[in-house]
Write a protein that binds this DNA or RNA. Sequence first.
DNA 1: CCTTGACCTTCCCATGATGGGAAGCTCCAC
DNA 2: GTGGAGCTTCCCATCATGGGAAGGTCAAGG
Lengths: 143, 143
Amino acid sequence: MNIGEASNASGVSAKMIRYYEEIGLIRPMGRTGNNYRVYGEEEVHILRFIKRARNLGFSLEETETLLKLWQDKSRESAAVKEVATAHIGDLERRIAEMQGMLKTLKHLANCCGGDNRPNCPILDDLAGDGTVAPAKNKMKQNA
Amino acid sequence: MNIGEASNASGVSAKMIRYYEEIGLIRPMGRTGNNYRVYGEEEVHILRFIKRARNLGFSLEETETLLKLWQDKSRESAAVKEVATAHIGDLERRIAEMQGMLKTLKHLANCCGGDNRPNCPILDDLAGDGTVAPAKNKMKQNA
DNA sequence: CCTTGACCTTCCCATGATGGGAAGCTCCAC
DNA sequence: GTGGAGCTTCCCATCATGGGAAGGTCAAGG
């Protein structure tokens, strides 16, 4: 199987397959006489695993961990659960953050006439002197 | 005001202030004899505007649009609302996507014993031949 | 046999937003 | 005049991905 077919079969772009090989996520593939990479079902299976992990939002680093665990027949499921759980916490945090933004934005959009007058509460809010995160660097404050 | 003070006052790092100038998001600042950038209240106000827009999750490009609208006294609030509304849709889509991931992951983690046995439904699912996005490129399929 | 074009290879560059750090100024306080 | 904090520019790294160039290869069809 050539890289294009492996790409087709796994849903991972050829570009990414080469990249994964380059960063060591997958083993360097054997080559045919014409220097083409050769793939088998095993490799496609691995690529699919990676694809699914990425679809679930795992980073490549996390995916690597999962991949190793997957290939380690003696692993403990607790190790996997730990990775997944950390990721769940991550997702929850990001979702909460985005929901905060969403709420604010919706409120502003609601208050905005959306007409042909320049008056706009959205811009007023952005410009407003509301709580700006207090800058806390260790500057000398030499005014 | 030097860049450090402007940074303090706006909550935008000096590094980012220079970057915003470089990409044309803000006007190049005047310099003193020693080649230091000089900032006034006006600029700090703009930086705060940018900071707040970024905090709401607007990209720098969207922020630029909002910034221009802000400075255009004759703008129509409809234009602003449009940007905000598009962003709301964006946020909603991303939140929904992440919630989908979260749901799947939680389910998997729930089913996972998390013990010292290698049996693990999370890995089983990742490896599983569930629906893999059908690859659709225009390959010749020369098997 | 030769062309065509789809495929493969490597290499470099770009994204978006930010940070890190080096090398070399300036400025201020002591 | 010295130390150190601040400023300047410049380059590099991140993360995951794509774009594209330049060149080799293979298969099909005229």
